[in-house]
Simulated scan of single mutants.
Amino acid sequence: MTKRVQIVLSEDILSLGRTGDLVDVAPGYARNFLLPFGKATPVTPAVMKQVEHRRAKEIERQVTIKQEALDFKIALNTIGRFTVKKQTGEDNVLFGTVTNGDVAQVIEKSTKKEIDRRNILVPEIHRTGKYTVQIKLHSEVTAEINLEVVSY
């Protein structure tokens, strides 16, 4: 059975891990490729301390991002309803459809905070009326907003 060597990655390596990860690799891979090219550093007590500190900072940052998403979800619920104005024809049928970009613009106009349109899930909207739209604010936080489509 071959012995494995522990190293800390100095940069992202596709098949191995991300910067700061502690990984086990074959000794030859570490000695001949990773260490000479500066892609990794050997594990020492000082390096381990840095890795733990970096992990703690990353966890703290993730908690902060999640809390901001929860606060924004509360703000969206407080606003209540967003209105999109579209051109309509007979029987309140829209010319075109309401897209996630339209919803992102309405939210940005109301809250002054930019939302990535790819995180907005809009149902098929072809008529005026009231709809529910889902917005993914964080991997664990999803908000639902009420959207009213009206004619102009």
Rank of each mutant, 00 (worst) to 15 (best):
111 T>V: 08
103 V>P: 00
56 A>F: 06
44 T>V: 03
59 I>G: 10
37 F>N: 14
76 L>W: 00
58 E>C: 08
131 Y>L: 00
84 V>G: 02
93 V>Y: 02
78 T>I: 08
34 L>H: 02
19 T>W: 04
137 L>F: 05
4 R>E: 14
12 D>I: 11
115 I>Y: 04
62 Q>K: 14
79 I>Q: 11
55 R>V: 10
94 L>V: 03
151 S>Q: 07
87 Q>A: 11
147 L>D: 01
44 T>P: 04
5 V>G: 06
31 R>S: 12
99 T>R: 00
108 E>G: 05
55 R>H: 11
134 Q>H: 09
44 T>R: 04
22 L>S: 05
149 V>G: 04
112 K>M: 08
100 N>F: 02
49 K>S: 11
27 P>D: 07
131 Y>W: 10
16 L>I: 15
90 E>A: 14
41 T>Q: 15
87 Q>I: 08
117 R>C: 01
19 T>P: 01
51 V>R: 13
78 T>A: 10
74 I>Y: 09
23 V>G: 05
65 I>Q: 14
85 K>C: 07
50 Q>P: 07
118 R>E: 04
115 I>F: 00
100 N>S: 12
98 V>Q: 00
11 E>L: 03
83 T>I: 15
85 K>Y: 13
70 L>M: 08
44 T>F: 01
144 E>K: 14
79 I>N: 10
107 I>G: 09
19 T>Y: 01
93 V>S: 04
132 T>V: 09
52 E>Q: 13
148 E>R: 11
54 R>L: 14
138 H>L: 04
88 T>Y: 00
19 T>M: 07
8 V>N: 05
79 I>R: 12
71 D>F: 08
78 T>S: 13
128 T>Q: 01
84 V>I: 15
121 L>T: 12
45 P>A: 05
86 K>G: 02
123 P>E: 02
52 E>P: 06
20 G>L: 02
106 V>P: 01
124 E>H: 11
71 D>H: 12
43 V>F: 06
143 A>Q: 07
36 P>G: 09
138 H>I: 07
48 M>S: 03
89 G>W: 04
104 A>L: 05
43 V>D: 06
